[in-house]
């Protein structure tokens, strides 16, 4: 871990609150260790701003190991920045050049109103899950775990889809602000497993309806979502969502 340092020029979106108008502010940070992660760089900036009596940049983050899905910002036009299959918190400064200028802005979508600076409100995703992203089994009524065999390849595919961390990068990168990759991942996980079979049609119809209600757009096969997904979720899950939805539209009972 050789200590190498670089200078970065940052243009960061500052916005006082949901209703306020925002603007970019410029900052210059020198002698940044390239082993530093992106949020650690923002920490360095915030420490400096704080001691100068200025407002630090608000940004969401928590686990800082790429699994909680709390962090995220658009760096030079790319959600979570330039490294493939990497959350913002796992993006290290060694991916940038000395003297480079970075433009940092929040995830933007109609359904993700800005709360402050780089912090956005992603509660729409929770409401989509509430519509049907579950299997209805009360605690205590489960049969023995090995009573529900699942073929290994199906379990692996379900796990591929279940790896979604709900960060919202797919939505921020989509020109239509579609949530199809996020919803497709959950629908796929549950449709691939025998446990999810009973509620399959209901789930597809209800989650798509909730997605529309929240103001997410539709998929036009831009594949931007797949390109930025930090967990490598495949757009095959969108294809499966479409099949599940069509199937449910033909054979499912209409939603009440």
């Amino acid at each position: 871990m050789a200590a190498k340092t670089i200078t970065l020029n940052l243009k960061i979106w500052r916005q006082a609150g949901a209703g306020a108008s925002g603007r970019f502010e410029a900052y210059r940070l020198e002698r940044l260790d390239t082993d530093m992660s992106f949020p650690e760089m923002l920490d360095v900036l915030n420490e400096r701003l704080t001691l100068e009596g200025r407002e630090p940049v608000a940004f969401d983050h928590d686990c800082r190991e790429g699994i909680c899905g709390m962090c995220g910002a658009v760096v030079d036009g790319i959600a979570h920045g330039p490294a493939k299959e990497t959350t913002l918190c796992q993006l290290h400064l060694r991916h940038f050049q000395d003297g480079q200028t970075l433009t940092i802005e929040p995830f933007r979508a109609k359904a993700f109103p800005v709360v402050k600076d780089l912090v956005v409100d992603r509660s729409a995703l929770d409401r989509v899950i509430q519509a049907g992203g579950f299997i209805s089994v009360n605690t205590g009524s489960a049969p023995d775990a090995n009573g529900i065999p699942v073929p290994q390849h199906k379990a692996e595919q379900a796990m591929d889809a279940a790896a979604c961390i709900g960060c919202g990068a797919c939505i921020a990168s989509c020109p239509n602000a579609a949530a199809m990759l996020f919803v497709g991942a959950k629908i796929s996980q549950l449709a691939l497993l025998p446990q999810g079979e009973l509620e399959r049609e209901q789930r597809a119809l209800a989650m798509v309806q909730a997605m529309d209600r929240e103001g997410f757009g539709n998929c036009t096969n831009q594949r931007e979502c797949e390109a930025v997904c930090p967990k490598g979720i495949s757009i095959r899950n969108i294809a499966r969502l479409n099949r599940e939805f069509l199937r449910a539209a033909f054979i499912g009972e209409p939603l009440k």
């Binding site: 489960a142 529900i148 699942v150 073929p151 379990a155 796990m159 279940a162 549950l190 446990q195 999810g196």
Partner: peptide, 13 residues
């Protein structure tokens, strides 16, 4: 384990 499997947790198989 029973409960989690019933919920659709994709454990290794």
């Amino acid at each position: 384990i029973d409960q989690c499997v019933a919920q659709g947790v994709p454990f290794a198989r």
